[in-house]
């Protein structure tokens, strides 16, 4: 099966007058058509910048892809002219964000916005377009779609707005949906509804999904494969069952142990010392080394090797390398 999306050695940098900040450093991603890939990371991990790079929407003028390739359906998006991207965005690759309020037009009825997205990419009569929009609103679980289509975004609840944004993203049946923290701003009971919807849509429409979250619980719920990022680098990647059952990278292990669970009765939570380092200039070595229990001198000096631990299970770590050798 040819992958839908293949990212190789992606490096994203921000150039300022005085300094260059490296936000993503050597990212590889593989996503099959109809697969679900999750990127999990904390603030500054580079996960959102990676998704913006795929859309070629990095903040300008400072942000740029310094290296690497983003192969989507066999062609390198980075080699395309900037003028070719609008035809791809929305039609082939669509994106939803944490805060739908800022992505929706406040003075346009939501139904009209979805219709506009459709007209942008397809030659379609207005009666037919209307039918498609109604069908999509129904599909994303908006009750009384004919009425809600006339609402403005501020008249909708947070959960309904997120559904509208999902409808707008999927109206042209894109092959890839990028969901960046899609439920982070929502209450837990509404989060359940939206995650359930995303899973159902993937089954019915077959849209491949790249989901980005800081929340291991969200990732465990929806992603089939998981990429764990820290400080712009991939720490570990594995299929979901392996990652959560047999994590090998000290960062993944530490993070999972630091999360309180409903069914555990530990008196103290595992602590990762220190704090997340803000992104900075390119540096050799492992970005997690200053906080790592297992760090050794080499970790701060040389990039860790990528150790293959099983099919599709890779950890970038000197300590893991030593343990398996």
């Amino acid at each position: 099966m040819t992958p839908l999306l293949q990212v190789r050695d992606l490096v994203v940098e921000f150039r300022f007058r005085r300094a260059t900040i490296r936000a993503v450093d050597g990212l590889d991603l593989d996503l099959d058509a109809s697969g679900t890939l999750g990127i999990v990371g904390e603030s500054g991990s580079g996960k959102s910048m990676a998704s913006l790079a795929i859309m070629r929407l990095l903040p300008q003028p400072a942000g740029r892809v310094a290296q690497g390739s983003i192969i989507f359906e066999g062609r390198d998006l980075l080699a395309l002219k900037a003028s070719a991207m609008p035809a791809i965005r929305g039609r082939d690759i669509a994106m939803i964000f944490q805060e739908p309020m800022s992505a929706l037009n406040p003075v346009m009825r939501v139904g009209d916005q979805i219709t506009e997205a459709l007209h942008l990419h397809e030659r379609i009569g207005s009666a037919q377009a209307h039918a498609r929009v109604m069908e999509m609103l129904e599909l994303v679980g908006i009750p009384a779609p004919a009425e809600r289509a006339y609402a403005y975004s501020h008249q909708l609840s947070g959960g309904m707005r997120q559904r509208v944004m999902i409808a707008m993203a999927l109206i042209c049946r894109p092959k890839l949906l990028i969901a960046d923290e899609p439920t982070t701003a929502l209450d837990v009971t509404i989060q359940s509804q939206v995650l359930d919807l995303l899973k159902r849509l993937r089954r019915t429409l077959g849209t491949a999904t790249l989901i980005i979250s800081h929340d291991m619980g969200v990732i465990a719920d929806v992603a089939e494969r998981v990429v764990v990022m820290y400080g712009g680098r991939v720490m570990e990647t594995a299929d979901r069952a392996t990652l959560f059952r047999d994590p090998r990278h000290p960062y993944t292990r530490g993070l999972l142990a630091a999360i309180p669970r409903l069914r555990d009765h530990r008196r103290r939570l595992h602590q990762i010392p220190g704090s997340v380092r803000p992104a900075g200039p390119p540096r050799p070595g492992c970005p997690f080394a200053p906080r790592c229990d297992l760090a050794r001198p080499v970790c701060a000096e040389q990039d860790p090797p990528r150790i293959v631990l099983g099919e599709g299970h890779i950890a970038a770590c000197w300590a893991v390398a030593e343990a398996v050798s």
Partner: peptide, 11 residues
């Protein structure tokens, strides 16, 4: 509410 808690345990 309790059933909506997502835990990092896919099993």
């Amino acid at each position: 509410l309790l059933s909506a808690v997502l835990e990092p345990e896919p099993e």
